[in-house]
């Protein structure tokens, strides 16, 4: 059964209110891969992660994670599945009233019956993995953005998940920290045998660490390519990402009525 994909989305339709954000969405991720998901702002990348983690339910279609259909999963089963997922939030989402050490110890203390000495060793191991063993006693507000994200990473992998989700892990970081976090994601994926989904705007880093680059547009997967194919692509849409052009096939403007009409109309 190892050929079965870890993540499988089939004809998914999902949105907020009336308007669908994802429509006719298909995605399949086999175990062990790193997939970079790219797309315009508001394109539904964060929504995609919320579907995979079961924080939202698809309107129609099927979301299958490790053989479990996410719709109709009982809260208990959902939590059981989630304890095998890790999510890195954009700003880390560290518990601000706890030290770095206690943040990483949190999942062990809440989800296991391990005695404190063993938890201590596990926490130090995870901190060592992200290079921050020396910062164990810091409070979150004493950390730089890059350090906070690494601590959050250590916390997210605490319970050895099978699946890691990263929501824009590189935004707001200096170039060195971007490199550090990117290499960590790669290294963790290899050493712990994870499967990773990275939502990002950073094509350079994605190309460096991902096995596949999935580009979302208009609620669908627009292209599903290897890094090599992206580099060589002449597609104007992909070049817009690669070269960082503000306007192009991915519009700069959110959906709106014509500018002139709105300026001339009454309030």
């Amino acid at each position: 059964m190892s050929s079965q994909p870890l993540i499988e989305l089939t004809d998914v339709r999902f949105g907020y209110g009336e308007r669908p954000v994802l429509d006719g969405f298909h995605l399949s991720v086999p175990k062990g891969q790193i997939v970079a998901v790219m797309g315009g702002s508001g394109g539904g990348k964060t929504s995609l992660l919320s579907l995979i983690s079961g924080r939202n339910t698809a309107w129609s279609g099927e979301v299958n994670i490790d053989g479990h259909n996410m719709s109709g999963l009982s809260p208990k089963k959902l939590y059981a599945l989630r304890s095998r997922m890790g999510m890195l939030f954009q700003f880390g989402a560290l518990f601000t009233d706890m030290s770095v050490y206690d943040n990483i110890a949190f999942p062990y203390r809440e989800k296991t019956d391990l005695p404190e000495p063993i938890i201590r060793d596990l926490v130090l191991m995870k901190l060592q993995a992200v290079g921050l063993r020396g910062a164990a006693h810091f409070m979150p507000h004493e950390l730089s953005g890059g350090m906070a994200r690494r601590v959050a990473l250590a916390r997210a992998i605490a319970l050895d998940p099978m699946l890691m989700m990263y929501d824009e892990p590189f935004t707001g970081l200096d170039p060195i920290s971007v490199g550090v976090v990117a290499q960590l994601i790669r290294k963790l994926n290899q050493t712990f045998g994870l499967t990773s989904i990275i939502v990002t705007h950073d094509l350079t880093e994605s190309l460096r660490i991902a096995d596949r680059v999935v580009i979302i547009s208009q609620g669908k997967v627009y292209r599903d390519l290897s890094p090599q194919e992206v580099r060589e692509s002449q597609d104007s849409f992909i070049r817009q990402f690669a070269d960082g052009l503000p306007d192009g096939p991915v519009p700069f403007h959110h959906v709106a009525r014509p500018y002139a009409e709105q300026l001339l109309s009454e309030l």
């Binding site: 989402a93 601000t96 989800k111």
Partner: peptide
């Protein structure tokens, strides 16, 4: 409110720890 705004509640929920209880 701040825990919600900084996604600490969401992070807890993602760790399969029920924020309502914890």
């Amino acid at each position: 409110g701040l825990m919600v705004a900084t996604e600490q509640i969401a992070a807890m929920d993602m760790m399969a720890v029920n924020p309502m209880a914890r």
